[in-house]
Design a protein around this nucleic acid. Structure first.
Lengths: 113, 113
DNA sequence: ATGCGTTATGCTGGTAAAAACATAACCCAT
DNA sequence: ATGGGTTATGTTTTTACCAGCATAACGCAT
């Protein structure tokens, strides 16, 4: 017997940040490009871009500073607001993770070493 | 800004109990019939029955005592094992709920009365 | 000027999930 | 023996979502 859970943030009933977008944004920070980040995950650029767009629209803030054209063709990096936001979510998510794990042990693995 | 979460139990990677089935089983206990329970929710009997079947198969235990035909046409009631199981899940789920709510407040509603 | 690699965005076909439909079997009551 | 209300299950239809395709604009480098 195992457990699973999902947690995410919404604004006006619309999802704005969950594990998927967190991962994507993290990869973008790491690679400096939406396309490269999407490539690393099993995601199409089309989908990655759409997810970011939706989140930005719903949040009403820019998550990325994007550049079209240039020496590397272009690129994207996180805005300071995005950095703050995902960091806070990461901590929240981490605390929830611990809590769920502990509750599961308590109720479904009582006498385990 | 709001949060949402889902939590459920699995066996060998297959879901066996979550909020949906919990609700369904609760309604069955209340009404003594799969069909009536499904009717109360916005669910078709076909779907309700299928969900229960899958869970029973995966768990390897009977969740319902079912009767075909009879004075009321038939009916269904929870087995003692099902009662124990869903009660434990309910408590687990409740604890998780509290924990998530608290973490959310901590990280996203710092100075609220 | 041509090309490369990027952001940006509409469109479309396929697929998987969900809903609806159709029957059968059962048993008590009338 | 007929009917009502149930469990049980296969089949079909509809819907919703996702993947991929296509295309444009941009700016630097060569």
């Amino acid at each position: 017997m195992e457990y699973r859970f999902k947690v995410w943030l919404e604004k006006e009933g619309q999802p704005v940040l969950g594990d998927g977008l967190l991962h994507l944004l993290t990869m973008i920070r790491q690679h400096g490009s939406i396309r490269k980040a999407a490539g690393e995950m099993k995601m199409s650029y089309r989908q990655a871009w759409g997810n970011i767009k939706k989140a930005e629209d719903r949040l009403g803030i820019n998550l990325l500073i994007k550049q079209i054209g240039g020496e590397a063709g272009g690129g994207a990096q996180l805005t300071p607001e995005a950095e703050m936001f995902i960091e806070r979510y990461r901590e929240f998510r981490s605390e929830v993770d611990s809590a769920v794990r502990e509750s599961f042990r308590k109720f479904f693995e009582p006498g385990e070493s």
